[in-house]
Computed example of a mutant assay.
Amino acid sequence: MIRPATPADAPAIAAIYNDAVRNTTAIWNGTEIDAANRIDWMAARAEAGQPVLVLEEAGAVLGYAAYGPFRPQEGFAATVEHSAYLAPEARGAGRGRALMAALIAEARARGVHVMVGAIDASNSASIALHEKLGFRQVGLMPEVGQKFGRWLDLALLQLRLDDRDAP
């Protein structure tokens, strides 16, 4: 089941986030967070009209997805940058695709024009998933990040959500 996140989901969301911090290059920092941080984050998203979705199975939150502003200037108001993370045991079974499809549907319903994904260029599974969902790679930024003692390249992917010729 994919549904809007609630404050009760904050511990699971924090655990999924922290696993990505500790073990992956999906998040390019080493700072773990707690449930209170995620409650504040969800409240800020809700206030801005931006969804946070969770994927729940058998009462356990196995993943989450959200989007926020791509850039803070008003000229970028119709463009968002998303993030989606799954618990390690939930990866590779189509759950990420379902979660992303739900987030894309939410963005379309809210009038978003373009969704951007900024992905570690070596994360071929995530890039392939995005491409299956219609994203296309529009940029590559070599060595703009670092984690685990190495430089990281950033792949920029985008999905146009509507056919408007003008805002």
Rank of each mutant, 00 (worst) to 15 (best):
M1I: 15
M1S: 14
M1Q: 14
I2V: 15
I2P: 12
P7Q: 00
A14L: 02
Y17M: 05
Y17T: 04
R22W: 06
A26V: 02
A26D: 02
I27R: 02
I27L: 09
W28E: 06
N29S: 14
T31Y: 05
I33V: 08
D34N: 03
N37F: 05
N37G: 06
N37L: 05
I39M: 02
A46D: 14
A46R: 11
A48W: 12
G49M: 10
Q50N: 14
V52A: 01
L53Q: 07
V54P: 01
V54F: 01
E56C: 10
E56T: 06
E57C: 07
A58S: 06
A58M: 01
L62M: 02
G63Q: 04
Y67R: 06
Y67D: 06
P69C: 14
P69Q: 15
F70E: 11
P72C: 04
P72F: 08
Q73A: 15
Q73G: 14
G75W: 11
A77V: 13
T79C: 12
V80Q: 10
E81Q: 07
E81S: 13
H82Q: 11
H82P: 08
A84C: 12
L86E: 02
A87C: 02
A87F: 01
P88Y: 01
R91M: 11
G92L: 03
R95P: 04
R97Y: 12
A98M: 07
A98Q: 13
A98K: 11
L99E: 10
L99N: 07
M100Y: 13
A101N: 12
L103Y: 07
L103F: 01
E106G: 03
E106H: 03
R108V: 02
R108W: 08
A109C: 01
A109E: 08
H113V: 04
M115I: 09
M115A: 09
V116W: 05
G117K: 09
S122M: 10
S124A: 15
A125P: 10
A125M: 06
S126D: 07
A128G: 10
K132I: 09
V138R: 00
V138E: 00
G139W: 03
P142N: 09
G149T: 04
G149F: 04
G149R: 00
R150G: 04
L152W: 03
D153E: 12
D153L: 10
L156T: 13
L157P: 12
Q158I: 13
P167M: 15
P167R: 15
